[in-house]
């Protein structure tokens, strides 16, 4: 049981009195790569947001004490108009730790570089966010989540809109992270093929229900 990092028990999830998912039971453990799948509008992102603590539960419980969440939203969330370089975007992940007048020191900059390197994106550090390709942006956002030093990495459709080669690279990178860094990785995806052989479990969300947690072969 020590490997359990995050758990939803009988969670009822929805917006403004409208329940979208009834009684979800989800457990995330170290070294897992869990995929949340299901048709459009079924509530996959809502479930992910509930796991991240962003969506208040209408019932049930969320157990996540003492763990750090690394959250990777959809790429389009960051406006290309914002004049941030890739390293600035990753640096946003440290804002939770820095005091108001504290400057980013050598330690923090080293952490940013380390996170970029782990995502094979160190060469992008000085490049503006707006000129990065979809795959490069995805790597930078994953680095931003990693700089938090998370126990659980939650990703919202990290492979959507990517070409097959980049898609494979991102999935391989996530697989490597969960194996080597004792992370639990949970991601939303429409397509299961690129994740075949990498994911440890698939959660199906459909008609307000989360399917029993089945281990993939």
């Amino acid at each position: 049981m020590d490997d359990v990092l995050l758990r939803l028990d009988d969670a009822r999830i929805g917006y403004a009195g409208r329940v979208i998912i009834h009684a979800a039971c989800v457990t995330l453990r170290r070294h897992e790569l869990v995929v949340i799948a299901g048709p459009n509008g079924s509530g996959k992102t809502t479930l992910l947001r509930a796991l991240a603590g962003l969506q208040p539960l209408q019932g049930g419980e969320r157990h996540a004490s003492g763990i750090r969440i690394g959250y990777v939203p959809q790429r389009e969330r960051i406006d290309p108009l914002v004049p941030l370089r890739a390293e600035d975007v990753v640096g946003l992940g440290l804002f939770g730790e820095l005091r108001p007048w504290q400057r980013m020191g050598a330690t923090e900059r080293a952490r940013v570089r380390d996170a970029l390197e782990r995502c094979r994106a160190l060469d992008l550090a000085r490049r503006p966010w707006r000129v990065l390709s979809a795959g490069q942006r995805q790597r930078v956002l994953i680095a931003r989540a990693l700089v938090v030093r998370p126990d659980v990495l939650l990703l919202d459709e990290p492979t959507a809109g990517l070409d097959p080669a980049t898609e494979r690279e991102i999935v391989a990178m996530l697989d490597e992270l969960r194996r080597l860094e004792a992370l639990a990785v949970c991601l939303v995806s429409h397509q299961l093929e690129p994740l075949a052989g990498r994911s440890t479990r698939v959660l199906r969300v459909e008609k307000g229900e989360v399917s029993p947690e089945a281990r993939t072969p």
Binding site: A52, I69, I78, L84, L92, G96, L98
Partner: peptide, 22 residues
């Protein structure tokens, strides 16, 4: 200047800010 990081985070990615406890 004191709250520049909070304002930037809230402007760029409010959901991510909440996962950092802001």
């Amino acid at each position: 200047a004191a709250f520049r990081r909070e304002i930037l985070l809230a402007s760029v990615d409010p959901e991510f800010a909440r996962t950092l406890g802001r």
